[in-house]
Design a protein around this nucleic acid. Structure first.
Length: 153
DNA sequence: CCCGGAAGGA
DNA sequence: TCCTTCCGGG
């Protein structure tokens, strides 16, 4: 990455880092959001970065399978999502049931390398809502505008 | 449903 | 540290 592009440290956790050993919930959410077969379960809806959990029980079940937590449910999963509020990874869309919104100015898609940006969920969202308009280039300026150039807290 | 404190696991 | 579990309260 170019300098002046202050991505948060937690986005750079190496594989060996204990914190990144296990899949993180927001990675998993993004993963589901990216796959068409889960659009009946969870999908982008509304504003950019906003998504709706259409089938909370199913999302919880899937998450439980991934984490080997057979007793996972939406109550517990949503608690984990609430911990993202302070981290500014997510926030709640108030008044809209099961609806949350990614804070893309903070979230860096670690699982989606810079070269794979055309497939990143944010651009998919853009395409989805803009009738398939071409994704913008990956210049630092574009990224600054779209993702923010926020420095570390 | 949604919120956040508290405790605890790996 | 990132949830998982449980829960009283709004």
């Amino acid at each position: 990455f170019k300098k002046g592009f202050a991505f948060p440290d937690w986005a750079y956790k190496p594989e060996s880092s204990p914190g990144s050993r296990q899949i993180q919930l927001w990675h998993f959410i993004l993963e589901l959001l990216q796959k068409e077969e889960y659009q009946g379960v969870i999908a982008w809806q509304g504003d950019y970065g906003e998504f709706v959990i259409k089938d909370p029980d199913e999302v919880a079940r899937l998450w439980g399978i991934r984490k080997c937590k057979p007793h996972m449910n939406y109550d517990k999963l949503s608690r984990a999502l609430r911990y993202y509020y302070n981290k500014r990874i997510l926030h709640k869309t108030k008044g809209k049931r099961f609806t949350y919104k990614f804070n893309f100015s903070k979230v860096v898609l670690v699982n989606y390398p810079i070269l794979d940006m055309a497939n990143c969920p944010f651009f998919l969202t853009q395409n989805h809502f803009n009738g398939g308009s071409a994704a913008p280039d990956c210049s630092p300026e574009v990224r600054r505008v779209w993702w923010g150039d926020r420095k570390r807290d």
